[in-house]
Amino acid sequence: MSITEHTAEAAAIAGPDRTRSGRRKQRRRALAGFLFVSPAVLLVVVFFLIPLCSAAWMSLHRWPLMGEARFIGFDNYVRMWGDTRFWDAMQFTIYYTIVVTIAIFAVAFPLALFVQQPNRANSFYRTAIFLPVVVGFGSAALLWVWLMNVDTGLFSPAAVALGITEEPVNLLASFNGVFWSVIIMVVWKTAGLTMVILMTGLQGVPGDILEAARIDGASPAQRFRRITLPLMRRTIALALTLSVAGSMLAFDQFYLISSGGPRNSTLTAVYWIFTQSFVSFRLGYGSALSIVLLIILVIISTIQLRLLRDPRDTK
């Protein structure tokens, strides 16, 4: 038998063994990958999928806090269409989301441009600006309630001392006072996180491209508009989605600062869901409103991501 025939015979014998060995390695890799992601999958199932399915099931029932639940089909969803208070709350929530998102980006983007260069001074500024993010929304809202108190707070006496007003002003007595106070509080609380996200995107823009554009005569505004912003599409989409989702789910600040007042003018969608579920004890109806709010939020987030989609993602 020639050397060629011996080689072919050995390869024919070893071929199936190599195939089986390769398949075992692939199975081990797949098992290892599953073990790595299994904690995250378990958390998603326990804290998202199961509650979501439970809420969807509850929305099909008249579900009192005490007593037996009764299946009523889609009656809760039919009733929702005539709930003017819910749609007013949704309208206010969307208005609040638009205003606070614009305000957050108007503050966070200049701050990100200011602190993007790595040096000791900027490290201090980043820390100082980011500190309010670690404060809980409940604590921040309670702090703001004290600051806005007409008798014991700081804002009203400061306005009188500076000559802005002639007498103490109760900021919690009017819609504009409550609304803009909450906007300022939320911007103070969350702009640091958006700044860090945008700063990361700014630092990812290649410096050689900006330098080449500068040499070609592009002004700073042109470089920012034509190079920096397009290359930050993904970063901006992430920051915008987080801001919009958080604003659409606003509850703590309005619950603690204004309790939905004055005259329910600052009632948010989540606040109304909370009222129906845990004040009026209509858990089934509150679940139906939650499902609708989730669908609206998914639609808004999908539109955002499509509008800000990076052209490179479609290739």
Results as ranks from 00 to 15, higher is better:
residue 3 I to L: 13
residue 8 A to R: 14
residue 10 A to I: 15
residue 11 A to R: 13
residue 14 A to Q: 09
residue 14 A to K: 09
residue 17 D to W: 15
residue 18 R to I: 12
residue 35 L to E: 14
residue 38 S to I: 12
residue 38 S to L: 15
residue 38 S to V: 13
residue 43 L to M: 13
residue 46 V to E: 03
residue 46 V to F: 00
residue 56 A to H: 00
residue 64 P to Q: 05
residue 65 L to S: 13
residue 70 R to N: 04
residue 73 G to P: 02
residue 74 F to T: 15
residue 79 R to G: 15
residue 81 W to C: 02
residue 84 T to E: 12
residue 87 W to L: 05
residue 88 D to L: 03
residue 102 I to K: 11
residue 104 I to C: 06
residue 104 I to S: 04
residue 107 V to C: 11
residue 108 A to W: 03
residue 128 A to N: 07
residue 129 I to S: 03
residue 135 V to P: 02
residue 137 F to V: 13
residue 140 A to T: 07
residue 158 A to R: 13
residue 161 A to R: 14
residue 178 V to N: 01
residue 180 W to V: 06
residue 190 T to L: 09
residue 199 M to P: 09
residue 201 G to Q: 09
residue 215 I to E: 10
residue 215 I to H: 04
residue 216 D to F: 03
residue 216 D to R: 02
residue 221 A to S: 10
residue 222 Q to N: 12
residue 223 R to I: 05
residue 230 P to W: 01
residue 233 R to Y: 00
residue 244 V to W: 03
residue 245 A to R: 06
residue 248 M to D: 01
residue 248 M to P: 08
residue 256 L to M: 11
residue 259 S to N: 12
residue 265 S to I: 08
residue 267 L to T: 14
residue 267 L to W: 11
residue 271 Y to G: 09
residue 280 S to Q: 14
residue 283 L to V: 08
residue 284 G to T: 02
residue 289 L to H: 00
residue 293 L to K: 02
residue 296 I to C: 12
residue 301 S to T: 13
residue 313 D to L: 06
